[in-house]
Amino acid sequence: MPNEEVDAERQSAGGWAKKYYFATRVVMEAVLRPYDVGPTQWYVMHQLMTVGPTSQRDLGRMLQIERATLTGVVAALVRKGLVEQKPDATDQRQKVLTATPAGAALWRELPDPIALILETAFDGIARVDIETTTRVLRTATSKLANLFPKGNGS
């Protein structure tokens, strides 16, 4: 007889949110692999191509990734010639990232993995259901983030 407690946990909203997250990562990786771009690299390129030059510090906050992780991602993009990293004009200690012409050219070729994910995952699901799910997960995430905010000494 299966363990009903474990099975119920797997069927929870949190369990399904985790499964959805992992499934989206698989799709993103599969779509981007032929272009030698990883998901986090894609998010960096998305920011630079849709918003423009961005400070590396701000990018880390936006993507909610550790500084060391972002440093490696940026280094790979610079090494590939897709991103340029320059000192900030007002604070030389900070770096500003800009897409290179090669980065812009690659961006035009890249399929949009997020569009594919949304089209596939939510096809046939009523908009009101998607909005409810989004609202519930946003509220739950906010409550949990506020339970132990960073820097509270816990």
Rank of each mutant, 00 (worst) to 15 (best):
G72H: 03
V44M: 00
G15W: 04
G15D: 05
P34N: 04
R93V: 04
M45P: 01
S154H: 12
R25T: 05
M45C: 00
P39N: 03
G38S: 06
V27Q: 00
L82N: 12
E5D: 06
A121T: 13
Q92M: 11
E109N: 11
A140S: 13
L32K: 01
T69G: 02
V83H: 12
Q85D: 08
E5S: 11
R33D: 07
A115T: 08
G15K: 00
Y20Q: 04
A105W: 14
R127T: 13
K95V: 15
R33Y: 08
E9M: 10
E66S: 00
A89E: 09
T120D: 13
L116I: 08
M45S: 02
L106Q: 12
L137R: 05
S142A: 10
T54R: 00
M1P: 15
L118R: 09
V83M: 06
R79L: 11
Y20P: 03
T141M: 15
M28H: 05
H46L: 01
G103C: 09
P111Q: 04
A8C: 09
P2N: 11
R57F: 06
M45L: 04
Y20L: 07
R61I: 01
A68S: 06
I130G: 04
L48W: 05
E109G: 12
Q56M: 03
M45Y: 00
A30M: 04
T69K: 02
Q92C: 09
I117S: 08
M62H: 01
G52N: 01
A23M: 01
T100H: 14
R108W: 06
V44G: 01
V83G: 14
V83W: 12
I125S: 07
A30E: 07
F148Q: 15
I65A: 10
D7L: 13
Y21V: 09
R33H: 06
L110V: 06
A30T: 03
R135V: 13
T90D: 02
T134N: 09
F22N: 03
I130L: 09
T24G: 02
A68Q: 05
W16H: 04
E4T: 14
M49T: 05
L118T: 10
G103K: 06
M28V: 09
E9L: 12
K150G: 14
S142E: 13
A105E: 13
L97H: 08
P34Q: 05
A115V: 06
T24D: 03
Y20A: 02
